[in-house]
Design a protein around this nucleic acid. Structure first.
Lengths: 125, 125
DNA sequence: GAAGTGTACTAATTGAGATAGTACAACTAA
DNA sequence: TTAGTTGTACTATCTCAATTAGTACACTTC
């Protein structure tokens, strides 16, 4: 379910945060789904429980999950907000890339072509 | 000309590498332009000469610049390749983002609109 | 010869991230 | 009741990449 790359430049606890957010956005975990316990997940991923704790704390601080002593940690509402947030994030990044493409002299024609190419065979519009 | 952010997660020497590549791509520095000396740049940026040396070494390894003992460091050819490389990089990133947008349910219509928005007032195609 | 080049070392420092270990309060199930 | 599991808190230590500090050498230029 969750995977990490110890060699990545991105810290493990951030990978876990992103990973969990992704699972929620994808709908794999829905509201009130119980997350693996700190110790359980630490065991599965073969990393230190403190690292998991750090990820969970941050997720709770962001309102993504909620934790109850001696009960466990669970997915908070936030799915729609999470989707919206990611959407804004993507558009922002999208804009940044377009900007750089423009600077380097890539034409809108080229981009349109690439867009068509990528979207072919997909009927979501 | 060159700026760095010591607080960035990206190492200083990498920032310098990217910074110099950018200057070349933008045409600010052309072939055989002499780069600031290791000590000079270190002084300007208020960082250690070894860090500059590390950046220059990597740039030379990549064939972006060439260095001559007691002469200095200079821009190598590579401008076109650099542009091409960046272009491919951008399209790759572009594709990655489109993919993620599709996964999250953003329509091609939305993207088209964003594209028009960003490209308005620009006549390069 | 003095100043400035790239280059090559070794040693020390820094700081974020991760680990190790222990402990406590509260809930659950046997 | 008791054993096991939960989140949480805390300190100490380790690790590793990045950076700094300092010195030195060979060479060019003026």
């Amino acid at each position: 379910m969750l995977t990490i790359d110890v060699k990545s430049r991105k810290p493990i606890y951030e990978q876990i945060i992103d990973n969990i957010k992704e699972l929620i956005i994808q709908g794999v975990w829905s509201r009130d789904t119980q997350l693996p316990s700190v110790r359980q997940l630490a065991g599965d991923l073969a990393i230190n429980p403190n690292t998991i704790q750090k990820a969970y704390s941050e997720l709770e601080r962001q309102g993504i999950i909620y934790s109850m002593k001696s009960k466990g940690s669970f997915v908070a509402s936030g799915v729609d907000e999470l989707r919206k947030e990611r959407k804004e994030q993507l558009f922002k990044e999208f804009g940044r890339i377009l900007e750089e493409m423009r600077e380097i002299g890539i034409t809108s024609r080229e981009i349109e072509e690439r867009l068509q190419e990528q979207w072919k065979g997909v009927q979501n519009d």
